[in-house]
């Protein structure tokens, strides 16, 4: 059942995904040897966003109500979106690793760089999953258009809060060094946070969708 839903999304998105791939390969070439973390971030971000795109396609076709006339449960329909999200985040991670791999063979041959590359990619993929986990319940609740707006506003709020925190730190007199050291450690909790976020997010989405009138 879920396989059929995945097939539906991949067939439906095949043109878009090819275009994304070409775009990312060009981006990769441009960023080659410079800011690979940035490239990895972009790859994971645009690919995980594809999950929302599949949902807006579903919405246009009124697919959800059609799917519910088939032997597909509401939970399966929700779970498939999370599976798609994970696959996209993984694909972004693989692209980022590929770029790092090419650099490793062509330029550096630096063994220490491999660990850094793996770790960075893991963090980027976690961030992507966490991002998707925040977004999906919003989409299930409000639809794709409103969800994007809500997320944009929440990012803005987060950004402003960050600025506020920064100035607070400046006032408080704690040395910036200390803060960065702490942040450097805390960031390794990101994968764990992403896993917990993903599970919670699925449960919330499944609950929201279980009551939805289709």
């Amino acid at each position: 059942m879920i396989k059929g839903l995945l097939l539906k999304d991949f067939y439906n998105m095949k043109k878009t995904l090819w275009m994304m791939l070409v775009f990312l390969v060009v981006m990769g070439a441009l960023f080659f040897g410079q800011s690979e973390v940035f490239f990895g971030g972009i790859a994971v971000f645009v690919l995980t966003m594809m999950t929302v795109t599949t949902m807006s396609y579903d919405h246009m076709a009124k697919w959800d109500s059609f799917a519910m006339t088939m032997p597909v449960t509401r939970r399966q329909l929700v779970a498939e979106k999370y599976l798609f999200l994970l696959m996209m985040a993984a694909a972004g991670g693989i692209l980022a690793l590929l770029l790092d791999g090419v650099r490793f063979f062509l330029l550096t041959r630096d063994a220490a760089g491999v660990t850094t590359s793996l770790l960075t990619t893991l963090l980027i993929v976690s961030a992507g999953i966490l991002y998707g986990s925040v977004l999906l319940p919003l989409v299930f609740r409000f639809g794709t258009e409103k969800a994007r707006l809500i997320l944009l506003l929440s990012f803005l709020t987060l950004f402003l809060l960050g600025l506020a925190a920064k100035s607070l730190v400046a006032v408080s007199g704690i040395p910036a060094e200390t803060i960065y050291t702490v942040l450097d450690r805390v960031i390794y909790l990101l994968p764990l946070v992403a896993v917990i976020g993903l599970i919670l997010s699925y449960l919330i989405s499944a609950h929201l969708f279980s009551k939805k009138e289709l």
Partner: peptide
Amino acid sequence: IGVVLDDGHFHENL
């Protein structure tokens, strides 16, 4: 059962 809905259908790309 087989169901044909008035408004729910397959995606146009398919």
